[in-house]
């Protein structure tokens, strides 16, 4: 497969995952803000910014911030920017993906381009829900009709590297605020915020099935990081990344297991053999930082191994 094509598939998938993640977070925050005092709502929005790796703001204007995170094309991480980039990548390789995949993505693009902040702000759920569904539909179509060749594995890599990294960031941002609050509020914790965290990973119901509705920080952290079955957990993503990398090595032949595979193995080991109480007792922020760093390293290793390798290394091997 051409490196350019692999690269486009990877980014198309990664951008779409990012758009969906942001849509979920905004949908939930806008909904929750209804129940909160302005001060607490402001705090929630700062948490949203931290969860998206966006810089903190001095004053929060929910309307402007929603616009910025959803529609602002100057913000390359806004939902519309991400969907536009995903579509642009798909367009570059239009002949490599099925018509069904293309049409679904194109439809999603047209839907978000038609809207603006004023048309959605008072009924945001009506706007964000179709984005989540659109992304899910695209993934469903991809999984049900695309053959499991190199292309599919690059799509998997894009999706799960993005998911592992953004879930770790999200969790870290929430824990930094909520754990501190929990200490201050002595014995009580902000139930709504913890539920919001789970819901923004579409994991509230799945969590309840495992732990009942008894919301406890260490269980939430365990579920989002270490649960082996939930496709939203970091561990699940790490496993998917590792599997796809292994298959890619086989599919592309000769080359020895590279740096990306070693890093993916390390990421998996970090998660597979971890105990949540130990992590919490030690330093959970450092632990989550490490996960994010590994994701970034896997990304650049994949780029170097398959996409941007130098001529000299390619001719030498």
């Amino acid at each position: 497969m051409l490196s350019r094509v692999a690269d486009s598939l990877y980014w198309l998938s990664r951008y779409l995952e990012r758009a969906e993640h942001t849509a979920r977070l905004l949908d939930l925050t806008l909904n929750q803000a209804l129940d909160l005092s302005p001060a607490i709502a402001g705090q929630r929005w700062q948490m949203v910014l931290a969860s998206l790796r966006a810089p903190a703001l001095n004053t929060i204007n929910a309307y402007q911030l929603t616009d910025h995170l959803t529609f602002d094309l100057k913000n390359k991480d806004s939902i519309v920017s991400c969907i536009t980039s995903a579509r642009e990548n798909a367009r570059q390789i239009r002949e490599q993906i099925s018509s069904e995949m293309w049409e679904q993505l194109n439809q999603l693009y047209l839907t978000v381009r038609r809207a603006d902040i004023d048309s959605i702000y008072w009924q945001p759920h009506e706007f964000y829900r179709p984005i989540k569904e659109g992304a899910h539909l695209f993934q469903g179509i991809t999984d049900s009709i695309m053959s499991r060749g190199e292309g599919w594995h690059f799509i998997q890599l894009g999706r799960f590297i993005e998911r592992a990294s953004s879930t770790a960031t999200l969790l870290d941002a929430h824990l930094r605020v909520l754990l501190k609050q929990g200490e201050q509020a002595a014995g009580g914790h902000d139930y709504l915020s913890w539920v919001a965290l789970l819901k923004s990973c579409t994991s509230f119901e799945a969590y309840c099935q495992v732990y009942t509705a008894d919301i406890r920080p260490e269980r939430i952290a365990e579920f989002l990081m270490l649960n082996a079955e939930s496709p939203r957990s970091v561990r699940f993503a790490a496993e998917a990344i590792q599997k796809s990398l292994e298959t890619l090595v086989q599919l592309t032949g000769s080359r020895q297991a590279g740096r990306a595979q070693r890093l993916a193995g390390r990421l998996r080991a970090t998660l597979d053999y971890a105990q949540v109480d130990e992590i919490m007792a030690d330093n959970i922020h450092a632990y989550l930082d490490n996960i994010q760093r590994l994701c970034a390293q896997i990304h650049s290793a994949v780029q170097q191994q398959y996409i941007t390798y130098s001529i000299e290394t390619a001719l030498a091997s």
């Binding site: 497969m1 490196s3 350019r4 592309t252 032949g253 398959y306 996409i307 001529i311 390619a314 001719l315």
Partner: peptide, 17 residues
């Protein structure tokens, strides 16, 4: 997608040049 090295043309693929 193409590059030239020593007057030979290669395409850049995921399996190398």
């Amino acid at each position: 997608d193409l590059l030239v090295h020593d007057n030979v043309v290669y395409m850049r693929t995921t399996a190398g040049l």
